[in-house]
Structure formats: C-alpha cells, structure tokens
C-alpha cells in the first residue's frame, strides 16, 4: 500500500497588545533601557502587572535596572532549536540585573560552557534592529560587552509580534491513505461497518457507533453519483492563508450508497439560482495525471476530496424530493 507522508506548518504572527506594564517595558528595551517595577520593598524584572503575593494591581512605578547583572543560574544549550535566539550553542541564564530583586531568564552569548558561571557578571546588549520585544536584547559576559549608542524610537510600543511557526510531519492514517489512493485512481472509497452496516466516506479505520476497528477488508467503492442535500453560497472571508476570493457554492452531497455526506463540495458551472437541495449530481474526475491530493491531511475536520474532481455535473435525473432525503435530514 502506498504511504502518504504529510507535512504541515501551523504558522501565525500573533499581535499582542501590551497594556500599562509590558508596554513601557518593551518601549524601554527598544530605547536601550531596562525597567523593573516597584512592588513593596522589591523591584521585579521583568515587570509584572500585579503583586505576585497578593494579586493586587501594581501602580506602573518603574525603576531602571541593569544594564549589567549577575548570573544566578545557567545551562549551556549544546543544540539550539530553531526557536532559540542563537543558532550556535549558547546559555540560558537567570540574571539578576543590578537594582532588581528577581532574575530575568534570557540568553547569554558566550564562547563556550567554560565561559559562563554562576556569580559571573554579564551585560545586556541591544540588537541593531529593535521592534519592542523581548528578543530585542541578549546578554554577554561583561568583558565581551560592546559600548552601544542607542537611538530611542518615537512612538510608545503598544503591540508586539509573536510569530509562531510549528512544523508537523506524519503519514496519512492507513484508512485515509486508501481513500486518497482511491481519489488518485478516480474512485470514491468508503468503509462499511460490519456491525451497523453503515457506510462512511472517508472511512476512519473504526466505526464510532458500533465501536469496532475497520480494516482494508471493510473498504467499499462508492458510486460517483449522489444527491446534494443542502448547500450554501460562500463569500470567502480573507485571512492569512486563504486563497479563495470569489463566491462559490458549497454543497453537502450524499454519494449513492453512503450514509454520510461529503461536506463542503465546491460546485462550479451551475448558477447559484439554478442550484437546489435534491439535485442529482455526478462527479467528473480530472484526468489521471492532474489529480492532486496534497491538501488532504489527517484532520477529521478538513478532510476534503482534494483537487481531483473536475466538476460536479447534473445527471439529468429528477430531483430527489425532500421526504426521500437520507435519514439525517
């Protein structure tokens, strides 16, 4: 059986509003200064909006701390991840900045694990490009520190961008791989539960009602004809990753012999005002070499028919009357 490796990047640039404490903290970082916040008898850095002991809201009463401080604890990262501030080995350290009573956890760029130790003095360094984010800065051993002249920015920092990009890799589950192979072969493959007799497409490798595992032996080929039981006309909303722009018909279609509809089937070539629930349709597959299933993943929510169907065309049969719709309607 063919295997279908899939890879997917879950990526979004989150825009975080910052409020009365983190906003000034990031503004200061951009402008070359580090702020702590007064909380009773102590100065907390990075600053927080509340007294950690009582939960009481703190006045935004800041004090400048650093730019140097003392390493309280560290670990040397031999193999950084792609999310770390440095792609060569570095240290994460807990650093008590001069004037602060709590340690900030940040990255220290040093020659090697022997070049960092608890009690050692380190100094903050400001990146050339600063946007108002915790990644605007890093630390180095005080001896390695460069004198920097920082030009303050103009506006207060009110937002920070936190881009999260995570890569996931897996293979299509066995039942879905067979469904996909079917689509590539121009066929609709579903699964029939031996326990309930119901046919699902795509099969899930189990029957959630009968509570039994299904195997390749339970696969069934379904007809390419079916009935649209409901539909909507969608005007696409734009968001990151959305490529659709024009309104289209999205229909739920029960293939003949199936007990579960194919959802979100795009219908083109039939005017919206001629489309109706009950219409009989036939899937016309694309030519063998043009069928693409790249967007099919393992998710239960987004299992499409890929890009294998040229179009859904009316069979010319009489409409199925509402009262004869499958059980669920």
């Amino acid at each position: 059986m063919s295997e279908f490796p899939i890879s997917f990047t879950l990526e979004y640039p989150y825009e975080r509003t910052l409020g009365p404490v983190i906003g000034p903290f990031f503004t200061a970082l951009r402008d070359g200064r580090v702020l702590g916040i007064n909380c009773g008898n102590r100065v907390i850095c990075p600053p927080v909006e509340y007294d950690p002991d009582t939960g009481a809201t703190l006045e935004p009463d800041f004090v400048e701390v650093g730019p140097a401080g003392t390493v309280e604890n560290w670990t040397w990262i031999a193999e950084p991840t792609s999310k770390h501030p440095f792609q060569e080995p570095f240290a994460f350290a807990q650093i008590k900045l001069d004037g602060a009573d709590t340690a900030i956890t940040h990255a220290v760029k040093a020659a090697g694990p022997d070049a960092i130790s608890t009690g050692m003095r380190v100094k903050i360094q400001f990146c050339d490009e600063r946007v108002g984010a915790i990644t605007d800065v890093y630390f180095v051993p005080e001896a390695d520190a460069q004198e920097q002249t920082i030009t303050p920015g103009e506006k207060e920092v009110r937002k920070t961008i936190h881009k999260i990009s995570l890569v996931y890799k897996e293979k299509l589950y066995p039942s879905r791989a067979r469904y996909v192979q079917g689509l590539l072969d121009g066929k609709f493959i579903g699964q029939r539960s031996p326990k309930t007799g119901k046919v699902s497409i795509p099969g899930k490798g189990y029957d959630s009602i009968g509570r039994v595992t299904l195997s390749e032996a339970d696969d069934v080929e379904l007809s390419a004809t079916g009935t649209a039981v409901s539909y909507t006309v969608i005007t696409p909303i734009q968001y990151q990753g959305q490529t659709k722009t024009e309104p289209y018909i999205s229909a739920m279609i029960f293939l003949d012999g199936s007990d579960q509809p194919l959802i979100a089937q795009e219908v083109h070539g039939i005017p919206a005002d001629e489309f109706r629930a009950g219409i009989r349709l036939r899937a016309k597959f694309k030519a063998a070499g043009e069928r693409n299933i790249d967007d099919i993943c393992n998710s239960w929510m987004f299992c499409s028919t890929g890009d294998v169907i040229e179009r859904w065309e009316p069979t010319g049969e009489p409409d199925v009357p509402f009262e004869d719709f499958p059980e669920f309607i």
């Binding site: 989150y14 975080r16 991840t81 999310k83 940040h106 915790i134 990644t135 920070t160 936190h162």
Partner: peptide
C-alpha cells in the same frame, strides 16, 4: 507569551 515564549525557552 510576552517575555519568555519568544525566546523559545523550552
């Protein structure tokens, strides 16, 4: 999410 996650602190 403000002062730690962007550093990839794992």
């Amino acid at each position: 999410p403000y002062v730690q996650a962007p550093l990839g602190l794992d």
